[in-house]
């Protein structure tokens, strides 16, 4: 059996060369970042490997788990399913942009208060997703929140806390 047959045996033909890097400017958390990225670099890898913003997590790289959720122009997306070059000119917000340890966002504080995480790995994606959900303004009941937070897997099973945290912030926002 031949794995990944490429017809290059004997060196007669060579493999297609990787694409070369070019200048890409991304606006991340309000800061313009000039980066040298090959066009096949995902937004997720650009954040983690090139911008050293490792708060955005890689859990599957296939849009199946939601760990890499970020906000683009306020909308939640899986950053593993978009290329960095496609996001030039857009406002990208990552977990680092939502709040910092000394300056937590209401969602971040609610996640701590309700113990809405254990290992913490899915947490940035959960919080970005919850922020996106709040921005969408369509989830109000517990069932709606559960449903619309279901793109984010938590293997530790912190869903009870996640629901309570998101519900608390949703309720506070709608009572304003």
């Amino acid at each position: 059996m031949i794995q990944q047959p490429t017809n290059t045996s004997g060196g007669a033909t060579s493999l297609p060369a990787p694409p070369s890097a070019g200048s890409v400017t991304l606006t991340i958390n309000g800061v313009q970042r000039h980066m040298q990225l090959a066009p096949w670099t995902t937004l997720l890898d650009a954040l983690r490997e090139y911008a050293d913003l490792t708060g955005t997590k890689k859990g599957c790289d296939h849009g199946q788990c939601g760990s890499c959720t970020v906000l683009v122009n306020g909308k939640r997306i899986n950053s593993c399913l978009t290329l960095a070059v496609m996001q030039e000119g857009n406002e990208i917000t990552t977990i680092e942009g939502l709040g910092q340890p000394e300056n937590l966002s209401p969602l971040q504080q609610a996640f701590i208060d309700h113990d809405a995480f254990q290992c913490g790995y899915c947490t940035p994606g959960q919080i970005c997703s919850a922020q996106g959900l709040i921005n969408e303004g369509r989830a109000h009941t517990e069932d709606e929140i559960r449903e619309l937070m279901s793109g984010n897997i938590c293997r530790c099973g912190a869903y009870v806390g996640i629901l309570a945290a998101v519900k608390e912030v949703v309720d506070k926002q709608s009572s304003k």
Partner: peptide
């Protein structure tokens, strides 16, 4: 008691193994 490492985890500052650049 709330998790003492909570702020690090909810802000993405907690570093996991693939995040030491």
């Amino acid at each position: 008691t709330s998790r003492v490492e909570g702020p690090a985890k909810v802000t993405g500052t907690a570093k996991y193994s693939a995040e030491f650049n």
